[in-house]
Amino acid sequence: MKKKLRTSYVLSMLLISSLLVFLFESVVYAEELTPDMEIGFSDRVDEGDGIKDPENPTITVKPKETSTASKERLRIDFAPQLSFSSGEVTDKDSEYTVKAQMFEDEKIVARGNFIQVSDYRSNPTGWLLQLRQEKQFVNTVKNGSTLEGAVLSFDNSWTNSKKSAEYSPRVSKEIIRLTNVGETYNIAKAEIGEGGGTWAITFGASDQNKNEKNPTLVPMVDDNGKPIMDPSLDKQLYTNSAVKLSIPGATKKEPGTYTTVLTWIISELP
């Protein structure tokens, strides 16, 4: 029996007063491709107890934005909702850095943007996590206005879990650039015997990580050097250089909101 869980996020970009701000909205749904019936018994206890700190997986946390996870034994528990830092609109090639993942927990600072996957199937056969950009950024007001040539990229990917690292899914050591809209890109792969339990696949890391990862998070400050705060959390915001959006200078940019759709897909193997 093959199953796929797709978690789709709408990523928006707002151009106002020569500032570039990115917004999002999300939708979650599950799809079963071959709905036959089976029963199985497993000694894998489904933790099912929330989202884990990607740098300290024994700790349950509450991300600022949450998604409704499926109840499948193989599932996506959490997917990043991406929001990009602001910058001046220019006719030069530009690169915009994502805001790091924030949490409602008082003692948890920002983290790299991450996706959490769980596999508690009775007969695990491995899994494949993929990402696809469904369309180029499109202006929601002015028909036909798109950000031609804009490219999202994901770097510094790594995994973490309460499980031993020898069972870790494998991630790309190269930068993943979504250069072709509609093409599906591999993010992580677990062979037979790998990826069981709950795993975080994270892009970037804080300077507090104990996993020997190079820090990619930088605190946000204004032109006067004062911290830029998240008013809903009363915490300083951070950027994460592991996730970026590149826009060619020649791309025409109309005022308004631009949106695209990112689809995260988890599939059973083989």
Score class of each variant (00 low, 15 high):
40 G>Y: 09
29 Y>A: 12
104 E>N: 08
253 K>Q: 14
239 T>W: 07
59 I>V: 15
33 L>C: 01
158 W>C: 07
162 K>E: 15
124 P>D: 04
230 D>Q: 03
99 K>L: 14
70 S>G: 14
204 G>L: 00
220 M>S: 12
13 M>H: 12
210 K>A: 14
216 T>A: 07
19 L>V: 09
37 M>H: 10
143 N>H: 06
225 G>Y: 06
247 I>E: 04
38 E>L: 09
220 M>W: 05
186 N>K: 14
28 V>Y: 04
149 G>H: 03
57 P>Q: 07
60 T>F: 09
253 K>S: 05
22 F>D: 06
251 T>R: 10
42 S>P: 06
212 E>I: 08
263 T>M: 02
202 T>V: 13
51 I>S: 02
34 T>R: 06
245 L>T: 05
35 P>R: 12
127 W>H: 04
151 V>L: 04
2 K>Q: 12
14 L>S: 13
82 L>D: 01
166 E>V: 12
244 K>V: 11
253 K>D: 05
54 P>E: 05
117 V>M: 02
180 N>I: 08
260 T>I: 04
206 S>F: 03
79 A>L: 08
116 Q>S: 09
166 E>I: 12
125 T>E: 10
5 L>K: 09
4 K>A: 14
227 P>V: 04
115 I>V: 15
135 K>L: 05
47 E>I: 04
31 E>T: 15
189 K>F: 08
170 R>Q: 11
82 L>M: 07
248 P>R: 06
260 T>Y: 01
17 S>Y: 12
208 Q>S: 15
192 I>C: 04
190 A>D: 04
252 K>I: 10
45 V>C: 06
89 V>P: 00
12 S>Q: 12
105 D>Q: 03
66 T>P: 05
169 P>A: 00
199 W>Y: 11
152 L>A: 07
28 V>H: 09
111 R>A: 02
232 S>A: 14
102 M>T: 09
159 T>S: 08
247 I>N: 03
214 N>E: 15
180 N>W: 02
25 E>K: 15
123 N>Y: 03
177 R>T: 14
214 N>F: 09
270 P>R: 07
258 Y>R: 10
19 L>R: 15
258 Y>F: 15
